[in-house]
Design a protein around this nucleic acid. Structure first.
Lengths: 215, 215
DNA sequence: CTCCTTTTGTTGTTATAACAACGGATTTAT
DNA sequence: ATAAATCCGTTGTTATAACAACAAAAGGAG
């Protein structure tokens, strides 16, 4: 994982990043599959960056129902919202979907370190803003995909985004069925049923996680 | 509306703000009730700040169903997500819920103006980040409130946030019934029905937009 | 390969949310 | 003050999503 290729460090040289990380007291930690990285209710000043593996971001209501908000693949950032609002306890839980390595950076230090002395800091702060904005957009998208009253509508809304992103009618789902159902906030078996109906009606074909939309 | 009291300009003096606004070429515009401020699909580099009135942020799916994402009262900021991601077209529509005055500031100028020369710019950029983070949190909250499968669960989830925010079991709703139903992504009449059931069962009492939670 | 676990698909039943239609209440305009 | 337009609650019907239970398929470990 080259940090220079990530959204957060875009525009910075590897050398600059190295200096920056030392200056900001960044640190790495490894997690086993299933292990909790950050818990609902805790407070953190740290931004997390996935170096390898996969982090799953989910939330639980008071009855214990789990709702998946998204996943963080290598290079992507999580908890930046909480790290950027001092004292705000997490409303989500972040867990390792597989063996995962995380880099933590203290957000307060990014924001309060004198930007006059170090233009690289300013760039990092700007990147952080863009990352935050993208995150908002992702949440907006999920709200969009769950705004239809019907399961079919939700699937179509989500698939249409996938297709746009892939630049093709054919794409791979990043979730298994249960996770997709959680993301769209519907029942898995009912969704499975709807998917096969849609296939029978010729709207799409699928095999495992690969979807092909017929226009 | 004193800009110094807003999240975006927190920590700045009125004098500093005045200089800043000139330097950033900020401008004001007035809108009549119902008038569109920003349309779905358009691209903007401008952050909007509500000076007076109320802006309603909503999105429409391809079948024309409207879903309310939130409202922006005086002092709050909107479209900052889009302004912070160059070229990203709006996925929402912003309209004036009543006669409204908006201040627009170019986000690119906030980000690219040399921060060495002007520490006030750096502060504004930092505030913008916090505002963005708050916005994300609001979206997360809505996702939380619509994660229950039942209307009652959604209402309770939302009301519990309202109560927490008000610091009391008794609070005022910022939406009318149709808007609340749109926010929670449910049918208005069914929701009305559920509300009166909940009142009959003694879970709460309500009169117009005022809610009192029992317990 | 075989057993075991996990994931996915299928079916039928039941609960419930959407929808349509309407009357009364409240607000706004004239 | 009256009329018009919204907004809100109610009812009954219908569509559909949740749920439960199980079967089939896929994936992993020994």
């Amino acid at each position: 994982m080259h940090l220079a290729d990530t959204q957060l460090f875009r525009g910075l040289q590897e050398e600059e990043i190295k200096t920056l990380l030392e200056c900001l007291n960044a640190f790495k930690r490894n997690y086993k599959k299933g292990e909790i990285i950050l818990s609902d209710g805790s407070v953190t000043e740290n931004i997390g960056i996935v170096l390898s593996g996969m982090a799953l971001i989910s939330c639980n209501d008071i009855w214990g129902n789990t709702s998946i908000l998204g996943n963080a693949a290598p290079g992507s950032v999580f908890a930046e919202v909480y790290a950027c609002i001092p004292g705000q306890p997490l409303l989500v839980t972040v867990a390792a979907a597989e063996d995962t390595c995380i880099l933590f950076i203290n957000a307060r230090r990014i924001l309060t370190t004198c930007t006059k002395a170090c233009p690289i800091h300013a760039r990092l702060a700007r990147n952080l803003l863009t990352v935050c904005a993208y995150k908002s957009l992702q949440l907006s998208q999920r709200i969009l995909h769950t705004s239809s009253k019907s399961i079919r509508g939700r699937l179509m809304s989500y698939f249409s985004e996938c297709a746009k992103r892939a630049g093709s009618n054919s794409f791979q789902l990043p979730y298994n069925r249960q996770q997709l159902a959680d993301y769209l906030n519907v029942d898995r078996s009912t969704m499975s049923n709807e998917l096969s109906k849609m296939q029978k009606e010729g709207l799409l074909t699928y095999k495992k996680n690969h979807i092909l939309l017929k226009i």
